[in-house]
Design a protein around this nucleic acid. Structure first.
Lengths: 206, 206, 206, 206
DNA sequence: CATGAATGAGTATTCATTCAT
DNA sequence: CATGAATGAATACTCATTCAT
């Protein structure tokens, strides 16, 4: 008897713990997206929750900590998708194309994460254009891909860091433009990004 | 004693008014650059000044107002430079090239304004990738230029908004990369940006 | 599994109850000594224990309650020692001497209790120079002894309360001084305390 | 005109500043005395004042800072009195006697400072029986006096630190006892303290 | 117009205590 | 009886802004 009770208890507790953590994360995601990281207060977050103020601190140490958890979540998700792309890629062109499409599609399908990412940009000491640690890691992987493509003679010997930054810049800026349009069209965004990146303004696009 | 001072006032006041305003702007520029917009308090700003806290409000309504004034200053300066470029341009290629060089050189020569611009990115409600009202205006002009180039058949019929955003994105991201290098090399940055923008990765660069 | 444990419970529980209570008391003694009564939190105490926070309240009602239990423990121990002294005493001089020696030796041998006593002094509403209820009780007994000594003509007719307080004050202040010296020398402390108390500065000491 | 206005202004300001500071100190003195240092909150202090909460921090950095200011005030006052005593003293006996009388009288006439001193005892890290920095300094001076008296052969070669501590202990403990009596009788307290200190229990008192 | 003290709403965080399991 | 998550009251301190001088 007491065995089953105990195991029930611990099970329920674990579930509840998970639920509460998720509730906080969900609330935080919304608030950050709505009023930005800087403007968000811990009170704003818990207010959107059934929890008491103190409960927040059972799960996260600070506002920054929740934010990092969210960033990590998105970054990990996105980076995994991009790794899958990398593995399936058979050509550099196809790789870049798939990367852009994956990237734009991800945010098209997760608008709240897009909003969060934008609010990210405002964190103090986080003013690298929009680079949390996750983005940084993603860029490092991209740099490696570029280096390899250069080594294999697939693309010319360009400045790797400049190119990495540029591709990121193109992705970010087109993402912002795409998110303002209705309906969302990740394919169109991808096509433009690919075209510009691969052949430039002079390319046979249009 | 203060009576004689008073009698000098009318002339001196105008000067002083300008001086005080400038003192606040200078202090603000430094503080924003150092500790970011979010972290900066009005007290931080006036502390770097000989003025009293209340005096701040004789010149600006709020922290945001000083920031906007600074942004406007930079934006106006930069936009004027870019207009000069536009007027002197004889070809689209030359125009883009000169735009990039002017842009990179400006920040290379005004590091504190670069820092300020970065801190800008973090403002709440200012999370458009990097768009203060000035940047917005600058982008509008660039869009016009692009539209005209398309109309004249100088470049293919690309999506104007996407292209404008992309050029901005490339500029911003390469700027960040450039500012981390020593020595600062605006020419190298310009060459890369131009090459990528005009001919893409596939271009005969390297 | 837990069923068989349950059947052992009735015997084991009593043991465990004692163990847990002692574990809490031990932890509390250390923490109070280290960071003082005011700074100590209930969490600090249970953290040094294998127990859960809620368990604390199965044994004590509050931080104050543990503290009182510890005080009582020390007070009871010390008072018992002093009662033994009283019983063995054959003269007032010998009584005082033995009292001091017992007192100083006790704390020399139980430094953590000394630390605890010091932290005691800081309790709110416990600001009588150094008087927990135990000390109060001890003082009452000492007052009786003094009264009796006066009645028996062994010592002059001094103000009993003043004298009791003074002997306590001398004891406390010399204890503090003694505890700062290395090595601890309760005999020296006792000799000084006795000399001063019995014959004053003018005594033939030195 | 503007001169007189200006000087009036700065004068009034200074007065007001002084008044506010004093108001805070007075309120703090009362609260500390009533509910002890540990239990006192900054809010408790400003609540007894007409000032706003933020105003507190225009004058003091923290609760500790006000307390230190008060302690210093009392300590300085008392030490000055004791220095006067020292200068007027013509014999060691007379010196000790006058010291005790001054000490007891001071607190008899400043009950709120007595209460404050008692609350002092409870500060964390301030658990030396009741020694703020002021008391410490006072003790150092007393030690010097004792050393000199020994050097001059006026009193036997006693352990100076023990004796200093003991005189302090006697003073403190008798003070506590005295303050509980009605009416306050500093002379009686002084006589007892002097008698005990100089001739001990065996003295010809009573 | 300059001053700088006063204001008081606002925020992060802690902690003793409760209570469902 | 043990557990430890949830609670929410409480506190210190900051800061933009006002306003009397």
């Amino acid at each position: 008897m007491s065995v089953s009770l105990d195991s029930l208890a611990s099970g329920r507790r674990a579930v509840n713990r998970k639920n509460n953590r998720d509730a906080i994360l969900d609330a935080a995601r919304d608030v950050f997206a709505e009023i930005g990281y800087g403007g968000t207060t811990v009170r704003d977050i818990i207010r959107r929750t059934n929890l008491a103020s103190g409960t927040f601190y059972n799960y996260f140490d600070s506002k920054e900590a929740v934010f990092n958890a969210l960033s990590e979540e998105i970054g990990t998700e996105l980076r995994q998708l991009l790794r899958d792309v990398r593995q399936r890629a058979t050509s550099f062109d196809g790789f870049i194309e798939a990367m852009f499409l994956t990237y734009f599609s991800y945010y098209a399908n997760n608008r709240e994460n897009y909003m969060l990412t934008r609010s990210n940009r405002g964190r103090d000491g986080m003013n690298e254009v929009m680079q949390g640690p996750q983005v940084h890691a993603g860029f490092a992987e991209l740099s490696d891909d570029i280096r390899q493509a250069i080594a294999e003679g697939v693309i010319p010997q360009l400045d790797v860091e400049f190119l990495t930054a540029s591709l990121g810049g193109v992705a970010f800026s087109i993402l912002d433009e795409m998110m303002e349009r209705e309906p969302l069209d990740p394919e169109a965004a991808e096509q433009f990004a690919t075209l510009l990146s691969m052949t430039g303004v002079r390319g046979n696009g249009g």
